[in-house]
Amino acid sequence: MKEVESKMLERAKVLLESGEVARVIGWRKGAFCHDPEPASFESVDELKDFVYDYFCGANLSKYLIAESKKEGKTAVFLKPCDTYSFNQLVKEHRINREKIHVIAVECMAKLDIGKIKAKGLSAVTGVEVDGEQVKVQTLYGEAVLSKTEIVLAKCATCNKTHQVKDEEIVLHERPVRDVNRFAEVEALEQMTAEERFKFWREQLSKCIRCNACRNVCPACSCIKCVFDNPQSGVAAKANDDKFEEQLFHIIRAYHVAGRCTDCGECSRVCPQGIPLHLLNRKFIKDIDETYGEFQAGESAEGKTPLTEYRESDLEPKDVLKEGK
């Protein structure tokens, strides 16, 4: 990963120095080794804080909505999963594609500090990844963990490949794995309606309405979100019952249905550990089963199953018949 990082840094320098781009969007060192943050670098000088490591899980595509409105071109480093969100935003005319230079970078799965801490480790100062083994350094010594057990939820079931690239920095090919991303959804489907309701009620009751999931979500890119708009009649609607407030997540899932690329950012940023991506994945699975396989963001053009009518579309009565 160090090698990849230095190549990225090298390119960022050249692009900024030559004036080819006005800024580079990447990750900047955080207060700890495990919390790098998305950042815009406008000069070579600023690049001293540039970082790309196993904790750079954040999806940078949403930042480009604002960046592509600015003067000059913007270069961005996109991991495979981020490129789907990028495409989707281009399709929705939210990003001006001409003003973006996409540098596709290799990923190899990112780590979840929450999962590392859950293994009983604290004060993590660094990690060294060697294949399946992760050597975690802490103030109190070293421990070796299995990588599979500590990757981000979104990486655990990821088989995404770069959909967009103006250039690429890929030194190692990530092996294609045989994973079923719908396994968890299938488990939920097996539950009775009561069990499922209980599951979600428990999960969603943890929500503190910090709006992190919405703010990070590349599909939630409305100029004015209905939840922030007193005119919409939605914002203050749901205060009668606690669970009603948590319908926020269900409304959100409906709003992004057919557009969600399954980038998994919602679950990554949730401070309460709610598996929000499962709501979206259930929609994705239903769309696949009802209208044929569809991956949002695979292309920046074409129609989507939920907004397109095809003669082969199921009739509502058949959906009800088959509905689970």
Binding site: K91, E92, H93, R94, S221, C222, I223, K224, N229, K303, T304, T307, E308, Y309
Partner: peptide, 15 residues
Amino acid sequence: ETMCNGCSQCASVCP
């Protein structure tokens, strides 16, 4: 106008 994202979803469903 102030709320429109220009995302084209409405145009794609308009029969």
